[in-house]
Each structure stands twice: as structure tokens, then as C-alpha cells.
Design a protein around this nucleic acid. Structure first.
Lengths: 183, 183
DNA sequence: GAATATATATATCAATAAGATATATATACT
DNA sequence: AGTATATATATCTTATTGATATATATATTC
């Protein structure tokens, strides 16, 4: 799936700035997909040139102008077609896993070469982090910027539920079995 | 964590060729970390130049020579020190999440724009794939090349258990809740 | 039997993406 | 007063991916 497709997909739920797209992908969605500024801004500029998005400059007092991007008619068409093509390619590829780079799990894998206290600190921080994500996912108050994409749609509910389940079972396992690593 | 550190860590469990390192990272470890040939080979060459690994050329009849890399004394020292530094940086960074790019979950997130049959096919393939990974993780027969790094050590047991738990709960959730997406 | 696909094995290169840095300002904290 | 953090965009170097090239053996399909 191309970066364009991801950005357009996020814009289908309403106009956003590049900074806001980054914020979305820094919330719970970060467990699914991440993009850096160095990818987001050039992609938005490219899509603007290609007429897939339009841009309204919003002046802000004493802050840099906010460039708010909206998906165009052409962009909507492009998005739907590209999404369909992406799913076809995904199905045909036979590659059904995710691309993961988990420094945490590599540190655990190599933890026999690490002091026990360091390993313990690492697991403590990871557990705290996982619980924060859980809280974000379960939070049901006013819609936040970063959580909006996963709210009020069947797709959002499904993903929230899936992530909650996976993260909870990870926390449980780690709390119950971390003693294995101490030996 | 640098690519060098990852390759050296894998070499601590025995000498390997670049191709074999890639195979390791294409087995169950792929759910944790992935590297492409374009990263692995240049890294091995760089480490050879820096004396972190040594290389024995193994001639094979009618096949390209196999270059088997072993970690050197200097490499072992470098690895342990770099691992300690990496864990310190990880702890200080405050960034305790993994870098994930899940095309599957993005397709699900955007699945309202996809035909229902396509979404169903996608979930079917993902479930089959997850069950294959589970089988690989639970396999307890003769040690395979790709599974060896996660066997016979407390760290390997911990990771195998963690992954088994997470993947199982993901399968369960998807099987029980996929109907949400059909509406 | 011929053709095609897959596996072993290394290497390189263009395209993509990450991560760091620059710029500018406001607010909050020490 | 000085430092850190947040808002906001942009660029640039470096790192990584994904595709391709090369070479051969085996297995599978037509």
C-alpha cells in the first residue's frame, strides 16, 4: 500500500494538516502504521500537484500557517481504485505478515548479554507503555484528535477490540512469565 | 539498535551466511524483526572490514560459494557494549512502542471502501497465515534452521510463549468478531 | 520431454522512508 | 532567565526496501 493511499484514507474522515496526520499516526494507530514527517510532507505536496488533494492555507497568529489538506473528487476516485488494487496485490503476494521492527523484543532475545536489572527495567517500561495504550483504546470520553479515526465505525470498533485483546494478552503473559528471564 | 548489532546477535548462536541470516529472519523471528538482503550483505561486508566478523569461503559444487561469517573476539566485545548502549538509549528515549507497518490492518481500517467479499478473503488468508505461524512456534520436533534462535534458551521460550499468546488471542478475536465488519 | 517455478547463494542499484536538523513562535516549567 | 515542550512546515543525509542481475540444481507442471 502506497503512502498516498494511507494519507488519502486518513483524509476521508475530514480535512487535516500534515502535522495532524502525523498526530493521528502517533496515537493508537501507531501500533498499526507509522510514517515520518519526511514521508508525509513530500507525499502531500506530490498529491497536491496531482490534484488528489486541495489545500487551504489557514493563517494563525504568530504560528506558522496551517496548510489544511482536503481530498478532492479525483482523490476519492484514485483512493478507492488504489485500495482495491492494493488488496488484490496483497492477496496475490502470499505475504500476509506485517513488517515489524521491535527493538524491545530484540533486546529481550539478546537479554542473556544484559544485566538482569536492565532487563527488568526494560520490561517495566514496556508494561507501563502497553497499559497506557490500553487506556487510550478503552477511553470513551470526548473524541480526541488522535483517536477519532478509530471511533464510531464498525472498522474502528473491530480494530480497537482486536488491539485491546492482543495488548492485554501480551501484558498478562509478560507479568506471569517474566521470571523465566531472571534465571 | 543498529543492523550490525542484530546480525552479530544472530551470529552469537553460531556462524552463518548472509543467506542463512535472512532465513532466520524469515521464520518466526519475522514477527519481531525483518531485514532485506540489501541491508544484510553490505552490513556483513562492513563488519568484515571492521574485524567484527571473519569469513570462511566454502566452495560448493555448481552453486555459488557460501561465505560463512563468524563473530570475532572484537565482535563479541563490540556486540555486548553496543547492546548495553542500545538498551540505555531505548530506556532514555521514552519510545517504547514497536515500528509496525501492517498493510493487513490498514486494509481492514479502510474496508468500508472495499467489497465485502474482498474483506472476507483478506481475513481468511490472514487467519490461515496466523495459524501457520502458531504451528511453527509450537513445533517441537528436530531443530530447523529458522527456529533455532528461539529454542533451548529462557529468552527463546519467553518469546515463543509471548508470540503464541498474542497470535492466539488475535485469531480468537477475529474469528468471533469478524461479523462486525460485514455490516 | 520441455517449460516453469522454486530453492540456493551473493551482490548491486534505484526508489523509498526514516531520522535529524533548521526555522519560527508560544507557553509552561525550573 | 533559561530550558523544555508544543505547534507547524520543510529539507537533507543516511538507511532500508524492493527489484533486478547472475548462476545453477531440483522439483513441479503442462
Amino acid at each position: 500500500m502506497q503512502t498516498e493511499c494511507i494519507c488519502l484514507g486518513l483524509l476521508t474522515s475530514g480535512p487535516k494538516s500534515g502535522y495532524e496526520i502525523k498526530q493521528f499516526l502517533s496515537g493508537p494507530l501507531n501500533q498499526i502504521m507509522s510514517l515520518s514527517f519526511g514521508t508525509i510532507y513530500p507525499t502531500l505536496n506530490k498529491m497536491l500537484k496531482d490534484d488528489l488533494v486541495s489545500c487551504k492555507q489557514k493563517a494563525q497568529e504568530k504560528k506558522p500557517d496551517k496548510k489544511i489538506y482536503s481530498i478532492t473528487k479525483k482523490g476519492q476516485k484514485w483512493f478507492k481504485q488504489n485500495l482495491l488494487e492494493s488488496s488484490g496485490e496483497w492477496l496475490r503476494s502470499g505475504n500476509y505478515g506485517d513488517q515489524v521492527k521491535s527493538e524491545f523484543l530484540m533486546l529481550i532475545l539478546f537479554s542473556e548479554y544484559l544485566p538482569k536489572e536492565t532487563t527488568n527495567l526494560i520490561i517495566n517500561e514496556r508494561l507501563l507503555f502497553a497499559k497506557q495504550i490500553l487506556a487510550l483504546l478503552q477511553y470513551d470520553g470526548p473524541v480526541t484528535q488522535t483517536g477519532a479515526q478509530m471511533r464510531n465505525t464498525p472498522q474502528g470498533s473491530f480494530l480497537r477490540g482486536l488491539m485491546t485483546n492482543i495488548i492485554s494478552s501480551g501484558i498478562d503473559y509478560m507479568e506471569k512469565n517474566r521470571n523465566i528471564l531472571g534465571k
